[in-house]
Design a protein around this nucleic acid. Structure first.
Length: 422
RNA sequence: GGAGGGGUGGCUGAGCGGCUGAAAGCGGCGGUCUUGAAAACCGUUGAUGGGUAACCAUCCGGGGGUUCAAAUCCCUCCCCCUCCGCCA
């Protein structure tokens, strides 16, 4: 959520920033409501001031055993008037709040201006794609032939975009989760958390999934609970409504959770393989940082995610998203894209973002500075990494001509020492 | 799910119609003392909104009601605790 006061006072800059990300939101509606709200507030607060003073007088008179019938009667009228205006203010404030919940974040000035993903910028590339003496297969063929991915039965059990992992496939999934968590907690200083996977509407609103993107979420029929689309939701909400201490910052959490997405807008897209599933595992990193440090923290967060790919020996590149491709809540985002031999291209495997104070305003997360000022905190998060896509990348990049797959060295301790899946 | 008890500032906890945004203690901050620290003592210490400002308004789990006036009374929802039931 943007700061209403800031929007009011910097209307042209905000309009331009939102225009850069292709938003068609009309801020003039906001300005009109905002003005009306302040006018009514001034009026009603004056009336309340009168009411407070007069009530005090009535109280004093009562104590002296006197009573002023006339005063009480006129106060009854005044109170009714106050109530009426308060209702009007309430309606306007609800409208303003609903409106602001639908306004996306303004991009950070360093985010390159652009229309869509074609305008994204390649920041750096790590190593080279592997060379094959044969035609590499797609991961779904590699996995099916090894009998570690079972697409048919996944669909039978649930529906399309669900996959059954078997044997060393299931174990590789688990190995990746443990490897990533151990790396982030052991070497990058994150605290491991395991949050609820079902969350309430308030939590979804705080991080920006609701109200705008409800169609992407699985909702429980009989309870006001949603399956999380990412650990970002429960982990960011850990501190909802709290004031943190400056000396504790930055606070860094890493969490493994399953993630659930309806993929409502992705009909027919990437239906083969395990790239786009309704249920997938992910290890997530979440940070709470001081505003003046949050962009440095984003660089570190991104390199924490990169290190996972480096240790796994997977070729990748880092993309800086342009304004037009930025997510709803993000001010700046780096995507990590891993090399996928079967289609000789890159596939997004991690997204690392700084949300500035956008989520903190929605979630009311603040911190107290050393000089006792209370300010909104900055929130960040990034995948470290998406497990399913990492597994797909390993099957493709480490496949051998005989159909077997070499297990990357760092994973072997997690795989009972085996060097190859065959 | 049933019965009872309770939700007050960073924490513990008093208040149960007006003088209470809220006692007291702890914690935090500043100071005195000390070579320094601790202890002791003194002072100070909530948030949000509106206003150029003086200042004003709002907030005692959420929402609604009664009243000239609500942290205090009533209704309702949520949450926590204890006991019973059920259960991985």
């Amino acid at each position: 959520m943007l700061d209403a006061k800031f929007v009011r006072e910097n209307i042209d800059a905000v309009k331009k920033a939102l225009g850069n990300r292709g938003s068609d939101i009309n801020l003039n509606d906001f300005l009109v409501l905002d003005k009306k709200r302040r006018e009514l507030l001034v009026e009603v607060e004056q009336l309340k001031s009168v009411r407070n003073r007069t009530s005090e007088e009535i109280g004093k008179l009562k104590k002296e055993g006197k009573d002023d019938r006339k005063k009480v009667l006129s106060m009854r009228e005044l109170s009714q008037k106050i109530k009426n205006i308060d209702v009007k203010v309430g309606v306007i404030e609800d409208k303003l709040h609903d409106f602001m919940l639908d306004v996306p974040n303004t991009p950070h000035p360093s985010t390159p201006v652009g229309v869509n993903e074609n305008d994204n910028k390649v920041v750096r590339t790590w190593e080279e794609p592997p060379k094959f003496e044969f035609k590499p297969q797609a991961h779904w063929d590699v996995g099916t032939n090894l009998d570690i991915l079972d697409f048919k039965r996944g669909v039978k059990i649930a529906e399309s975009r669900f996959t059954l992992l078997k044997g060393n496939g299931a174990r590789l999934e688990r190995a990746l989760i443990n490897f990533m968590l151990d790396l982030h907690t052991g070497e990058h200083g994150y605290t491991e958390v395991f949050p609820p996977i079902l969350v309430n509407a308030q939590s979804m609103t705080s991080t920006g999934q609701l109200p705008k993107f409800g169609a992407e979420l699985y909702k429980c029929a009989d309870d006001d609970l949603y399956l999380i689309p990412t650990a970002e939701v429960p982990v960011t909400n850990i501190f909802r409504g709290e004031i943190l201490r400056e000396k504790d910052l930055p606070i860094k959490f890493s969490a493994y959770t399953p993630c659930f997405r309806r993929e409502a807008g992705a009909a027919g897209k990437e239906t083969r393989g395990i790239i786009r599933q309704h249920q997938f595992n992910k290890v997530e990193m979440v940070k709470f940082a001081k505003p003046e440090e949050s962009y440095d923290e984003l660089e570190k967060l991104t390199s924490d995610a990169e290190e996972v790919l480096q240790k796994l020996g997977l070729h990748y590149r880092v993309i800086e998203l342009c304004t037009g491709d930025l997510g709803f809540s993000a001010a700046k985002t780096y995507d990590l894209e891993v090399w996928m031999p079967s289609y000789e291209g890159y596939k997004e495997i991690s997204s690392c973002s700084n949300f500035g104070d956008f989520q903190a305003r929605r979630a009311n997360i603040k911190y107290r500075t050393e000089d006792k000022k209370v300010r909104f905190i900055h929130t960040l998060n990034g995948s470290g990494l998406a497990i399913g896509r990492t597994l797909a990348a390993i099957l493709e990049n480490y496949q051998q001509e005989d159909g077997s797959v070499i297990v990357p060295e760092v994973l072997r301790p997690y795989m009972g020492g085996i060097e190859r899946i065959e």
